[in-house]
Every structure is written in C-alpha cells, then in structure tokens.
Amino acid sequence: MESSVTKEISYEDLKALLGKSQNLFLVDVRTKEEVDKGHIPGSVHIPLDTVADAFAMVPEEFKAKYGVTKPPLDAPELVFHCHLGRRGAVATGKAYELGYVNARNYAGAYKEWSAKEGK
C-alpha cells in the first residue's frame, strides 16, 4: 500500500471521538515498557509486531486474547498510535492490507497526547 493512502487523525479529532464515540477502537502499538509509562485512556495494547496476526484472528480468539470485541472490517473509527507516529502509520498500513478500510493513524502519537494532556 502507498503511504499516501494512510489517513491520519488529529489530536483534536481524537479527543472529540474519545469524548463522544461508542465506536472508537484505539490501538496502542508501542512496546509494553512504553505503555507501562502511560497510555491514552481506552486504548487497547497490541504491539506493532503482532498487529497483522491480531487483526487476522477470528473474533472469538481476538476477544479472548485482548478482552475486547474485534472491530469489523468497516469499523468507522479504528485508530492506531505509537509514541512518535511512524509505527502507528505502519500498523495502519497493515490494517488496510487486511481490509480495514477506515483505519487511521494518530500521527501526533503519544508524545503529542502526553504533552497536551500534561502527563
């Protein structure tokens, strides 16, 4: 997939979705060590090197492993993020390849989030 296809979401848009959307599925693709230092509320931790396998799982297996319902391929608000933005973009591309047509990357990533949220 071309990287130009990757849709991005801004801090403001993500903040709005966190406040009002029941459909938001936010995936933190950082390492466990990074997540342990802080995370965006409501995010699901799926490390980058396991994203393709995770989103290829059958829904029952996904729920058993991650404790949440696997989003459908047409999930309207599937957002990936990492610490600086690059890994989130890679994960978004992997999701597209698996058929997740609305996947987006929070390009500001956790670094921007923590700065704006005062973490």
Rank of each mutant, 00 (worst) to 15 (best):
H81D: 00
G108S: 05
I46M: 02
K65F: 04
G93D: 12
D53N: 14
A103H: 04
H83Y: 13
V90R: 09
A64N: 12
R30A: 09
Y110D: 03
G67L: 12
H81R: 00
R87K: 14
V29I: 02
G93M: 12
V35C: 15
S4I: 11
N102K: 14
A52Y: 11
A75N: 14
G88E: 15
F25S: 08
S3K: 08
T69M: 10
L17D: 05
F62L: 00
A75Y: 02
G67I: 08
K20T: 12
A103D: 09
T6M: 09
P76F: 03
A103E: 00
P76A: 05
R86F: 14
F62K: 06
T50L: 08
A103G: 09
V79N: 11
L17S: 09
G19D: 05
E97S: 15
T69Q: 12
P47L: 02
V58C: 13
K7S: 08
A103Y: 07
K20D: 07
G108C: 08
D53M: 06
A91Q: 06
L18R: 15
Y106N: 02
A52K: 12
S43K: 01
E77I: 01
P41V: 12
G38F: 05
S114M: 13
N23L: 06
I9V: 15
Y110R: 00
Y100Q: 04
K70E: 02
M57R: 09
V58R: 10
E8R: 15
E2N: 13
G19N: 11
K15C: 08
R86K: 14
R87E: 09
L84M: 15
A115F: 07
S21I: 10
L48Q: 08
S3E: 14
H39D: 12
V29L: 00
V44N: 11
K7Q: 15
V51P: 01
S10H: 00
I40D: 07
A89P: 04
N105I: 00
L78T: 03
Y100I: 06
V58T: 10
S10A: 05
L18W: 01
A115L: 15
T31Q: 15
G88Q: 07
S10D: 12
D53A: 07
A52T: 15
N105F: 03
E112K: 11
K32A: 13
V68P: 09
L18S: 13
E112T: 07
P72F: 04
L78Q: 04
L17V: 01
A54R: 01
G99R: 02
T31R: 10
